[in-house]
């Protein structure tokens, strides 16, 4: 079975993109960065604005910082999680698979809990996290497992 993974150099690129996304996200959320030069005309397949009619297949004005941040988060997490390790063998493949399984399970358990215990804007923020939940938890699990395996080697020989 052929499994597609990015070349190993993409791992560092992934971490860099993720940190960049985190910095931009923090800036926009906590420090209200305006970045008005990023307000441009974009083509919308479907747009529903608050207290307005839906629009389809049309051009609208939009600040694309949120799209850029989401793109950076997704690419960063994909590259850092799905790049080849120095030696990519069957044990690493098994570690990937078990990390991915845990990530899917944890993410959806959190989503069920969130849907019952979070309401209004709190659920909206949580849903934003859930967009990246699987990738985030997978990356954490996978890199933690690799770290633990490497630590275990230090006690050998």
């Amino acid at each position: 079975m052929k499994t597609y993974l990015f070349p190993s150099v993409y791992q560092k690129l992934g971490f860099t993109l993720f940190i960049l996304a985190l910095l931009l996200f923090t800036g926009v959320l906590l420090f209200d960065w305006e970045l008005s030069f990023l307000t441009v005309k974009v083509w919308a397949l479907w747009d529903i604005e608050f207290l307005a009619d839906s629009q389809y297949f049309t051009f609208i004005e939009n600040n694309i910082i949120d799209e850029i941040i989401l793109l950076l988060f997704i690419l960063g997490l994909l590259f850092s999680g799905f790049s080849k390790q120095k030696i990519e063998d069957e044990y690493i493949a098994k570690t990937r698979l078990s990390s991915l399984l845990s990530a899917v399970l944890i993410n959806y358990v959190l989503l069920i809990l969130g849907s019952f215990f979070l309401y209004g804007l709190a659920f909206y923020y949580f849903a934003l996290f859930a967009l990246l939940g699987v990738l985030l938890i997978y990356n954490l699990k996978f890199h933690l497992n690799i770290y633990v395996q490497q630590k275990a080697l230090q006690h050998e020989e």
């Binding site: 030696i87 063998d89 044990y91 690799i146 395996q149 490497q150 080697l153 050998e156």
Partner: peptide, 17 residues
């Protein structure tokens, strides 16, 4: 472990595990 890992083309972590 490292030498054996190299001979069978896997990581040292695999042999250890």
């Amino acid at each position: 472990q490292a030498q054996l890992a190299e001979l069978v083309q896997v990581s040292r972590q695999s042999i250890n595990a």
